[in-house]
Simulated assay, not measured.
Amino acid sequence: MIILFATQAHRSTHRSLERHPDIDFRVMPYERLLRARRLPQATYIFSDLDRLHFWDLECVATIYRQLRDAGARVVNNPARHRSRYQLLRHLKLRSINEFNVWHADDEPPTDVYPVFLRTDSAHRGTLTDLLHTPVALRDALEEQISRGVPRREIIVVQYAAEPVREGLYRKLAAYRIGDRVIGAPCAHQETWVAKYGQRGIAPEELYEEEYKMVTDHTHADAMRPAFQHAEIEYGRADFGLFKGKNQVYEINTNPFFYGLKSHPFKIRLETFKRFEDNLVHALSEIDTPSRTTRHKLPDGRTWRAWFGDLYRSRRLSRWPRLP
């Protein structure tokens, strides 16, 4: 059995895996985990870490440590999780990425433009188009803050992308599951912000190239150091090629996984089927057989300390009832 922890609002990302006949995969909301006293024997994946409140993150890090010390297989240490800014700055310092990132109060060097704005936590894509001058950057920052975007959440990112064909951009992806890194389907889009992709927009030869990347795990060796430096054992890295080198844009610990039922090019349907097979096979390698043994979660003192902080930070009208 594999149990993936996610926030209640984003627990549907792995629904197709929960229904897959070849693997016992379940998603448990953190809201339920933080009130549980025992867990079944399983492999536990801690995902969605960037969406957790500080107190939640600290508490699930305690649960991670206790499960690990009890001999359970645990994936993604919450205490080692980095924010988007921390991750991108870390990858730059380790020469994994060529581009850099700054806080809103920093002043990027004049030779790094163009840049753009996005948030450190939210998965909402970019906040602006490309900004080519310090004046444009200052104006854009003021505009976002006046719209209500918190200054502490705004980061400045150096642009590092290039079209795969004239007027066509491609975002690449790779998953890490335990010790394996596998290729994943791409997203093709007419704009440089290639997030979700546009259906059938690429020529057939690019979909054939995508199939080969998924089948042969073309970028696996190049992407492995990024996962290792990020200390992420389960997640999806979104990256692109810039001047012939992979550039990692983010690593999502709760990636949305979906199938594809129809497409103008048959080869893309075969790509998604191959990716699904590879994903399920990689997950089966980290699976833990279900037993009657159950793991006991933190003792009463840990819960009381955490709920005390929760009570003060959220001003609950009453103490949560534990099962």
Rank of each mutant, 00 (worst) to 15 (best):
T7Q: 12
T7L: 08
H10C: 05
R11P: 05
T13H: 15
H14E: 14
R15H: 10
L17K: 07
P21R: 07
I23A: 14
D24N: 14
V27G: 06
Y30E: 04
R35N: 13
R37G: 06
L39V: 06
P40A: 08
Y44A: 08
F46R: 04
L52R: 07
F54K: 02
D56I: 04
A61H: 00
I63M: 11
R68T: 15
A72K: 05
R73M: 14
P78E: 11
A79T: 06
R80F: 12
R84W: 02
K92C: 03
R94I: 05
V101E: 03
W102L: 05
A104D: 05
D105N: 01
D106K: 02
D106T: 02
E107M: 07
P108D: 09
D111G: 00
V112Q: 02
L117V: 05
L117S: 02
L117M: 04
T119V: 02
D120C: 04
S121T: 11
H123T: 02
H123C: 01
G125V: 01
T126K: 07
T128A: 00
D129I: 00
L130W: 02
L130I: 10
L131M: 03
H132E: 09
H132G: 01
A136M: 05
A136T: 01
L137R: 07
R138T: 15
R138Y: 10
Q144C: 10
P150F: 02
I154K: 02
A160N: 04
P163I: 07
L168V: 02
L168G: 03
Y169Q: 02
A174T: 05
Y175L: 14
I177C: 10
I177M: 13
I177Q: 04
I177K: 03
G178Q: 11
G183H: 04
H188W: 14
Q189H: 13
K195M: 04
Y196D: 11
Y196N: 12
Q198M: 11
R199N: 11
I201V: 14
I201M: 09
A202Q: 10
P203S: 13
E205G: 01
E205H: 13
T215C: 11
T215P: 00
D216W: 04
H219D: 13
D221I: 05
M223E: 00
R224Y: 01
F227Q: 06
Q228R: 12
Q228G: 07
H229E: 10
A230G: 04
I232F: 08
I232Y: 00
E233V: 09
A237C: 03
G240I: 09
K243C: 13
K243F: 12
K243T: 02
N246Y: 10
V248C: 10
N254V: 06
N254Q: 10
F257R: 04
G259A: 13
H263I: 09
F265D: 09
K266Q: 15
L269C: 10
T271D: 12
K273T: 12
F275I: 01
E276Q: 15
D277S: 12
H281I: 10
A282P: 10
D287N: 10
D287T: 14
T288Y: 06
P289E: 15
R294T: 11
H295L: 14
K296E: 12
P298K: 13
S317F: 15
P323N: 12
